[in-house]
């Protein structure tokens, strides 16, 4: 079995709010100095799903990352965690692609890889929080797609997925190959170990350019970003204090009773 996992390098989504700044001209967030990029957290969940399939029933896991200026320390993490191969799609032309263009390039790379039973992505990349590329990839490749997986099993010619629902979960079966997008409920990526890091040094890395994929220049984005700004917040917090926590608690109780009676 061969499993492809798509992982995107992004700004650290959990950076402190004071470090987050926008470049109004480029309409992009500015990478804060000293805060390295990370793999999008849901993509790490997707990698974990792939590694569990590898542990459980044996699978070759291929990680794919697309972008420009990919930090090797970041994008090689899947190899250290247990993936078998890495495909890097790195080119200035591939910087800041829109979701549909990203799906097109990833689909071309996946066709070039050729053989696969399952493609995993995160439920959404934690920069633009869109959740489009997995579905668009399925449409590009003419495959079925199951979103928001919390558990994935391969049973004969089918992939059986528990997908997160607002009030529980659904069980869905898709013919393989198919695309599955993964939710954080699946579980966090395993710890990276020293032996894992050493083993990664010997694993193959392919680097492909637009010419390798025989792709024409990306189509212009279908959506135009006309504005990007920080939301204004006018709330001023009234701190309720007291000589002791108990006293503050009683004052808070009075405030709540006044503002929001039962």
């Amino acid at each position: 079995m061969q499993v492809i996992v798509c992982l995107k390098q992004i700004l650290d989504p959990e950076m402190p709010s004071g470090s987050f700044h926008l470049d109004p001209n480029r309409k992009r967030a500015v990478p804060p100095p000293g805060t390295p990029p990370v793999l999008s957290p849901f993509d790490e969940n997707a990698l974990e799903a792939a590694l569990r399939l590898k542990d459980g029933q044996g699978a070759k896991v291929i990680a794919v990352s697309l972008g420009d200026k990919l930090a090797r320390a970041v994008v090689k993490k899947p190899l250290s965690a247990g993936a078998d191969e890495l495909v890097l799609l790195e080119d200035p032309e591939w910087e800041d692609l829109d979701h549909f263009a990203s799906a097109r390039v990833l689909a071309a790379a996946i066709r070039k890889i050729g053989e696969f039973d399952l493609i995993l992505t995160g439920r959404q990349a934690a920069d633009w929080d869109a959740g489009l590329v997995g579905s668009a990839l399925a449409e590009e490749l003419g495959l079925g797609c199951v979103t928001l997986a919390r558990k994935i099993e391969v049973v004969k010619d089918k992939v059986r997925v528990e997908r997160v629902a607002p009030d529980g979960y659904e069980v869905v079966e898709a013919l393989r190959p198919c695309v599955v997008t993964v939710d954080s409920e699946l579980g966090e990526l395993r710890q990276i170990t020293m032996p894992g890091i050493f083993a990664a040094k010997k694993k193959p890395i392919q680097e492909w350019k637009p010419a390798d994929l025989k792709l024409a220049s990306p189509a212009p984005a279908r959506c135009e970003l006309v504005d990007l700004y920080l939301p204004k917040r006018e709330t001023v917090c009234e701190i309720i204090g007291g000589e002791s926590p108990e006293e503050a608690a009683l004052k808070l109780a009075d405030k709540l009773l006044e503002k929001c009676p039962a």
């Binding site: 633009w128 929080d129 135009e224 990007l228």
Partner: peptide, 14 residues
């Protein structure tokens, strides 16, 4: 909202 709700993006579709 984008970047986890830190910023707001305005889009126009072509």
């Amino acid at each position: 909202p984008v970047y986890g709700g830190r910023a707001l993006a305005v889009l126009v579709c072509k």
